[in-house]
Design a protein around this nucleic acid. Structure first.
Lengths: 344, 344
DNA sequence: TTGTACGCGTTATCAA
DNA sequence: TTGATAACGCGTACAA
């Protein structure tokens, strides 16, 4: 009596098949499925038995059509290969799954145009909300975000526009703290490897924090101490090489990603400089590799998983029209001091 | 005349709205959209104009319901935070997008049970095929894969079961080559850091390659030279520490991932051993960090993007019932020799 | 407490 | 070349 039932042909079972097997009407099956109306206990059991035997599952498209609500969350990411984003992604998927949403993944390859196209695309595919994970937010985004016809949450970045929901750390404060730490060690000439120039937002905030810290210590801001990198290992190595080639005298170097710091470490070593004895080194993100470097890297930890979870939760809340306390969420960062900036 | 048209309420426009604006029937609009039946050129233009003005896009759920075909590809991954998988993911998304498929992402967190559940879940959500990216394939998978009711491609692993479609490198051959390289440098005592014990497949193949190479050189296989790691930096460090603590004499160390090699490098350094002078070191995968280590790491390059692209293409072909040459695809690997195994 | 009938937006079939 | 109609599988008024 517990045997599975196969339909004659091998089409997937519908709610009608279940009804027939259970000896009830389709609406009753629907009620059991969704726990809506009243259903006698014995009936419920019969229906559930039938569902099990047929291995029935509601057809998602039919359900979505009827309810006008795909339970899909779009996720547009500028670089699938950044380990940082991988951890954010994990958080997104976790929350989305828990709330019954699927995650539709798209890769913008860092191209602004593509990002905007994909926003359209995921909407067409029935996503009720989207997350945008990009390392280069531009003002041009705002218009598209607003007219996209669905809530779009910017994960891992803060922008001024009050209409754009954002989740991320306080970049200025984080950079400020890290600089203070370096200053406290007595460093006065601090090199900086910022992110790409076409990302005015995140790097801009961090630079602001750096400037503030220097100012607080009565030190001048020197544009010549800043080089640009693309957040990658190679980018960091090349930026550090440019800094060294220019003959910039520095006793400390702050890279805006752990990976760039890793690259910089390599460049410094090759130049015969020891870390931290000759040059102190710091990164940003606290990736696993930060602890794996020799010496282990001082850095700013971001709650990557939480950024993902909060972003997804916010996007879903907005999509479902739930009340939301704030659309700008700042998650806590943490300064992690390791040997790469140890006093000597 | 080119102005956008807004509907009174703000529901999304349907094919009927387009028909009304264009002064034709819904069927005609459908024909224009799908390029099926015959349509007079002037009519087509009117319809296209209406589509543009209404910013109309077909409702995906309605379309799927009618056509019984969601254009969705499931992607179940065991560890979203492995950089290696990130690159594979990128390839998957690229091909899926190009072929009109969305990618539905799920995270199994490396748990077998969860993987099987998610396989059900993505099917319920209307995926026509799925990819499974896992570092621990178990025989238990086979049954579920077969009864899941959709094609499932195993990306980045090869299993013996002839029914299971797989895409990946020839792990045995790759490990063999790397060992040959070490042997050619005169190494006779070679430590190995394998992957997790609960992954019999990938690590098993690589071990087989190692054994074969040693055998070819007339050297014995010594189980004591093998330690287990979980593919992570920390895992590699701890495995190397265990090896050293056991007093294993080795002049070379082969880790089955670049990240474990990075961890091992740290452990060796801390033990006062120089790489490559005292111990040669090699990894697997050729992640960006391999080149960024000091010294740069000898490793096996896998075509990560291609693995993703081929897997996705294969899954979609199977889903659409297209003819497929082979369901077992071996993609080429490449030995990359860098300073970490330089002769001295 | 349960069943009947309708419509969600689309495409395919058929008749005009 | 075009239009009317039915059906995909589900949830929900409304009637029983």
């Amino acid at each position: 009596m517990n045997a599975l039932i196969g339909l004659g042909d091998n089409r997937r079972p519908t709610i009608r098949d279940v009804a027939k097997v259970a000896g009830v009407s389709p609406s009753t099956v629907s009620r059991v499925l969704n726990g809506r109306g009243p259903v006698r206990e014995s009936t419920r059991r019969q229906v559930e038995e039938a569902i099990r035997r047929l291995r029935y599952a509601p057809h998602p498209a039919a359900r979505d059509l009827r309810l006008k609500s795909g339970h899909l969350l779009g996720l547009i990411i500028s670089n699938l290969t950044f380990p940082f984003f991988g951890e954010v992604l994990k958080g997104v998927v976790e929350t989305a799954t828990a709330r019954g949403y699927g995650v539709l993944l798209a890769d913008s390859e860092g191209r602004l145009r593509r990002e905007l196209e994909l926003l359209e695309e995921v909407r067409r595919r029935g996503c009720r909300a989207s997350l945008l994970i990009t390392s280069a937010y531009r003002p041009e985004h705002a218009l598209v975000l607003r007219r996209s016809g669905m809530p779009v949450v910017l994960a891992s970045a803060h922008v001024a526009d009050p209409e754009v929901p954002c989740v991320g750390v306080d970049n200025a404060a984080a950079a400020f703290e890290l600089m203070q730490h370096l200053l406290a060690q007595g460093h006065r000439r601090i090199g900086i490897i910022r992110g790409p120039l076409d990302d005015p937002v995140t790097s801009g905030e961090r630079l602001k924090g750096c400037r503030l810290a220097l100012q607080g210590a009565g030190l001048p801001w020197d544009e010549a101490m800043v080089e640009e990198g693309d957040f990658s290992i190679r980018g960091g190595r090349e930026a550090a090489e440019r800094l060294l080639a220019r003959g910039v005298a520095m006793t400390a170097l702050f890279a805006f990603s752990d990976e760039m710091a890793m690259g910089a470490l390599q460049a410094l070593r090759r130049a015969g400089l020891r870390v931290p004895e000759d040059v102190a080194l710091a990164g940003f993100d606290d990736l696993p590799l930060a602890e794996g470097l020799e010496p282990p890297l001082t850095t700013i930890a971001q709650p990557k998983g939480e950024i993902g979870r909060v972003s997804a939760g916010l996007a879903i809340d907005l999509a479902e029209g739930r009340p939301v306390q704030r659309i700008k969420v700042t998650v806590p960062h943490r300064l992690i001091v390791r040997r790469s900036t140890a006093a000597h």
